[in-house]
Amino acid sequence: MQYLLLIYRNEQKLINMNPTDRQKVSEEYGAYTQSIIQSGHFKAGDGLQPTTTATTVRVREGKTLTTDGPFAETREQLGGYYLVEAKDLDTAISLAARIPEAREGSIEVRPVMIYK
């Protein structure tokens, strides 16, 4: 089964991080990504640009409306994702718990609906 691991973090903390700490985080993510590639769980994954680059789209009464930025102000923002293959939810949770940001942010684990 496929699961989407959504990584939520305080993006301001990342923006304000010194270069040495940012490099350490980058290396941790690289090691994590390599480990799930080697284990066969990895399907896809990427980080996202800051919320300041986001555009929210809504269609109301046939008109497309756009708003700069994310839909809601929150303490944590969606910063990236991994799409993984896991035999069950417990395995997906185990993979999510190893994501570096799980120590300070949160990881949402969501089963993917596969349409056939």
Rank of each mutant, 00 (worst) to 15 (best):
P100R: 12
D68I: 06
G79K: 11
P70R: 09
K24G: 01
K24S: 12
G40K: 05
L65C: 03
T52H: 04
D68G: 14
A92F: 03
G105T: 05
P100V: 06
Q77K: 13
T51R: 05
R22V: 07
E108Q: 13
R22T: 11
D90G: 08
S106N: 08
R58C: 04
S106H: 11
Y8S: 04
T74K: 08
I114K: 09
F42N: 00
N16C: 04
R60D: 09
E61G: 15
K24T: 09
V25G: 02
Q77L: 06
D68P: 02
Q38R: 12
R60T: 10
E73M: 08
G80V: 03
L5F: 00
F71G: 02
Y3Q: 09
G105S: 11
K13P: 00
E108P: 01
K13H: 10
L95G: 07
T52A: 14
R110F: 03
L48Y: 08
E11Q: 14
S106I: 01
Y3L: 07
A92V: 01
F42H: 00
Y3C: 10
G80I: 07
A96I: 07
P70L: 12
A96S: 08
L95D: 09
I114Q: 13
E85C: 01
P100Y: 12
Y29E: 00
Y82P: 00
M113L: 13
K13V: 11
L4E: 09
P19G: 10
R75D: 10
D88C: 06
R75N: 12
R103Y: 06
N10I: 04
M17C: 02
D46Q: 12
E61I: 02
I99C: 09
P100D: 10
A44M: 13
I99W: 03
K13E: 15
G47L: 04
E101F: 06
Q23C: 02
E27W: 03
L5G: 01
V109K: 02
D21A: 14
L48A: 05
D90C: 04
I99G: 11
E73F: 06
G45E: 06
S26D: 10
G30T: 08
P19M: 14
D88F: 05
D68Y: 07
H41D: 07
K43E: 09
R98M: 11
K43N: 10
R98C: 09
E76I: 05
T51Y: 02
L6M: 15
E101M: 11
I93E: 13
G62V: 05
I7M: 13
T91R: 04
E101P: 00
Q2F: 10
E108R: 06
Q23M: 15
